[in-house]
Write a protein that binds this DNA or RNA. Structure first.
Lengths: 352, 352
DNA sequence: CTGTTAGCGCCTTCAG
DNA sequence: CTGAAGGCGCTAACAG
């Protein structure tokens, strides 16, 4: 194995000066050539690029952003990754950001974590580590988001209604959660529900609160009610769905709910699991409806009726908003609300 | 709304000099106080910290790492986020890294992407943006990983066997894929399989290749064979499983496979979907076994027998290895191989 | 078109 | 224990 021109592991990093010396030009010319500055004559540019490649040169991002005040990184703050909504959002965001040359710093919350670590991590996003933050569906938005804004950080809020005064300092991409709840209620009513139930997520989640408001309004409009003893509340995870449903379904046959609205598909998974464990037929004994239309809602083993919100489009809109705002911080703040629709599947279709 | 001491949006960032001036000390003292340098007298420290907080000061990470050559960030490179294995790994890694004060830069591949963007993103991890890279299960490891190593970047390879010469320049955390494949074969044989089939992922994935090797060896040991027409190959996603199974199951009844080994649970989802669509009973008509033991394999609607590898423990080991290597790059390279075990569930239990 | 010069904000000797 | 001075690697004027 003879020597080669590429750098060897652990070596001192090669700087722009090293390249300049080797190419017989000045360091500024190296800088310009590498950034594609038009004022460099093609011959010189090619020479520099070749030498740089041979030496394994790569710009030091810290030094660059110390001057430019741009990092070419954005942060994505999300809820628990195990909730399949988030991978979809993150994947879409990342795709767009990478395409535009931005790196993605991930900060995801954990359903079972005490929270301190999460907030510290979000707070750590100030200090010029990223050019902006896409805040999606994580809990406890207000205080930390406020801090980010106070630090001058652009924030786009994706898939989360904000209740506080943040509304007019951030770009927001949401969908019509009230309408979604209403659609769910109407569909359950139309497929014959008489004793609807609901499995809810945390009360302090404004998006879920809106779904709930729409659901209740929808039921009322259809002449149905949602008494307190047919509501269960917990985290957004299947465990909550499972425990809530085991409890709800233990009611005597005549009082047992005949339909369950799950505020998210992820919760619905647990409800379906409970039905299976208890030998209840879905939708024969109980109808189940979710919210989000995750990929797996359509598998034949799941076959879950659900309210679809266009998560991919929403994430794309959020990425676009973020990039636009980084370009021009003075832009007016936008609030786009996407439409939702109902996707009927086997978990509510009644035989006859 | 009166004035306040906190910074206002879009303001010029406050620097260590600003804090120094306001506190009546030197910038070096500010730096020392904020890093908890023991040589600062408590009174001074508190003063500085208070002033810094009031002014909304936060260290400029670029300037710091320009000197220290440490970024307090690590990259996690993973496969397609929609494959539920990755959220589990990423979540675990992130937890540990955040606990140790490291940010996480995410680069995830996409099953449907052409690949160029992914490799560019990985290549962009050189240049001092991160202190190390955890490379987990993404495709095309060799060339890009080699480049990272050549650039002096520590790399930990998680849950991916490497076939090339990289082995002795990286830390590796894997599990016994050959044994896992063997366990699957033995279990299928023991539950009465006569005509086993296999739905495989890409051929160039060394971990999957080992599972396959173990599976074939296990079948042979049990007196079973795996003819070519009972093997289907595609991506690691449910679509592959669905299409492969629809095809496999279309064979005349006497020749139809009576058991399917899926190289990952994610593929198995599609196979179960196919069985459901065709009205085949699992495991009555066909047994199905997966690999990974994802959360949802245990839900009653799925109830998938699978080979478990301890993904959480493996991710923890990878994070620990990464942190250790950042501390001391001269450490000997480790290769930990975790045990796997079989988790029997309903998708293979034969009645009688 | 290219080179020279001056910092970006911080850490780190070295003096006091 | 604290301050002063230099420089990390790069970009961005400003000259030539």
């Amino acid at each position: 194995m003879g020597d080669s021109t590429v750098s060897t592991p652990g070596r001192e990093p090669v700087t722009g000066y090293d390249v300049a010396r080797a190419a017989g030009v000045s360091q500024s010319t190296v800088s310009r050539a590498l950034r594609g500055d038009a004022r460099v004559v093609p011959d010189t540019r090619e020479l520099v690029l070749r030498v740089a490649r041979e030496m394994g040169y790569v710009v030091n991002v810290s030094a660059r952003s110390l001057i430019t005040r741009r990092t070419s990184s954005v942060a994505v703050v999300s809820g628990d990754l195990r909730n399949p909504s988030f991978p979809v959002l993150i994947d879409t965001l990342q795709r767009r950001f990478h395409a535009d040359g931005y790196r993605v710093v991930l900060v995801s919350d954990q359903e079972d974590a005490s929270g301190g670590g999460f907030e510290d991590s979000v707070a750590g996003l100030r200090g010029g580590i990223v050019d902006g933050v896409v805040y999606t569906s994580a809990r406890t938005s207000s205080p930390v988001v406020g801090d980010l804004l106070d630090a001058g950080m652009p924030v786009v809020v994706l898939n989360r209604d904000v209740d506080s005064d943040l509304g007019d300092r951030v770009d927001r991409i949401t969908s019509d959660n009230v309408e979604g709840g209403r659609l769910a209620a109407r569909h359950l009513a139309e497929t014959g529900a008489r004793r609807p139930a609901m499995v809810a997520g945390p009360r302090d989640n404004p998006s879920l609160a809106r779904r709930e408001r729409g659901f209740r309004a929808g039921l009322r409009a259809c002449g149905l009610s949602l008494p307190r003893d047919r509501v269960r509340r917990g985290q957004v995870d299947p465990r909550t769905g499972l425990e809530a449903a085991l409890d709800l379904f233990s009611a005597p046959a005549g009082e047992r709910p005949d339909a369950v609205f799950c505020q998210t598909d992820y919760i619905a998974l647990g409800v379906l699991d409970a039905a299976g464990r208890l030998g209840l037929s879905v939708p024969g004994d109980v109808a189940v409806i979710g919210y989000n239309d995750l990929d797996w809602a359509g598998w034949s083993m799941i076959d879950l009726t659900t309210v679809r919100q266009p998560l991919v489009q929403m994430a794309e809109a959020a990425a676009a908003a973020m990039l636009a705002r980084i370009e021009d911080p003075a832009l007016p703040f936008v609030h786009r609300v996407f439409d939702v629709d109902l996707v009927p599947r086997g978990s509510t279709r009644r035989p006859r």
